[in-house]
């Protein structure tokens, strides 16, 4: 471990394997200043730290129904080696969802799945407005990344379990790992085999990843950062800070996502 840490600290990246970030965004965000929001600048930053691929949901797709997912399609087509997209779902615009799903099949080189943001859109995960997305994703083996937060009415542990009980084969990434309800996140991973925990807003504090590793190991944990919100050097270094083995670090930064995304990339 020390050798890999020394290598990372010295070179700013790990040479022996690349990094895949499964939870990214792009573009301006109303809530805070994000200095590096353009795809070209993001690519420069990714290359400096050994991140090979970012899977992202564009802020405008999430927040601006007039733009929707076309901005994702454009960017992925321009930089297919660097980015894959989530088709963002805004539950308030059912027509957009229908159109997105109708065109989804033709965009297999763009999308790996869907992104849901219930806390922001203020519609609970189990609401019927998302139903068509869950059904489509389960049937077509597309991934869903949903924002989750412990205790939330919209995407807390109760809502997550309702979905998992109903869609047994769905591959679901819990963005932020049910933040603060860490024990429940662990229990859910133990009980449902197609669920993954994602580390954005998790490894900016000591103690949580250590607990995940102890209770469920590293096979179902994915690296995610909300990039360009958060910094890759900061996040990757925290895996070393948590005392993980080289093998665990490799699974989290690369292998788990590689196998999950294999059919799309």
């Amino acid at each position: 471990m020390n050798k890999l840490w020394e290598e990372f600290l010295k070179n700013g990246k790990i040479e022996s394997f690349p990094v895949i970030d499964v939870h990214c965004h792009m573009g301006f965000f109303y809530g805070s200043h994000l200095p590096y929001i353009e795809p070209e600048k993001m690519i420069e930053r990714m290359e400096s730290v050994g991140v090979k691929l970012c899977v992202f949901a564009h802020h405008y797709s999430l927040f601006n129904p007039d733009i929707g997912n076309k901005v994702v399609i454009e960017i992925v087509k321009k930089y297919p080696d660097k980015f894959r997209g989530y088709c963002s779902i805004n539950p308030h615009y059912q027509n957009n969802i229908k159109n997105d799903i109708n065109s989804y099949d033709k965009l297999k080189d763009v999308y790996v799945g869907f992104k849901l943001l219930p806390d922001y859109h203020r519609v609970p995960l189990s609401n019927k407005r998302y139903q068509i997305v869950f059904e489509y994703a389960e049937e077509n083996k597309s991934i869903i990344l949903t924002h989750t937060w412990g205790g939330s009415f919209y995407n807390g542990e109760n809502e997550v379990e309702k979905i998992l009980k109903k869609y047994r084969k769905l591959k679901l990434i819990l963005g932020h790992s049910l933040h603060n309800c860490w024990d429940k996140a662990i229990e859910i991973v133990k009980n449902y085999e197609n669920v993954y925990l994602e580390l954005c807003a998790v490894i900016d504090e000591r103690g949580v990843l250590e607990k995940f590793i102890e209770k469920i190991g590293s096979d179902r944990i994915l690296y995610g950062t909300d990039f360009p919100w958060f910094n890759h050097h900061y996040y990757i270094a925290s895996l070393f800070g948590a005392g993980l083995s080289e093998n665990e670090i490799k699974k989290i930064l690369y292998l788990n996502a590689f196998y999950l995304l294999k059919k799309y990339t």
Partner: peptide, 18 residues
Amino acid sequence: GFPERYFESSIAQLTHAK
């Protein structure tokens, strides 16, 4: 911010900041 956050994170970021 130790022990709430990791020493390694701040060090790695600053070391490789542009």
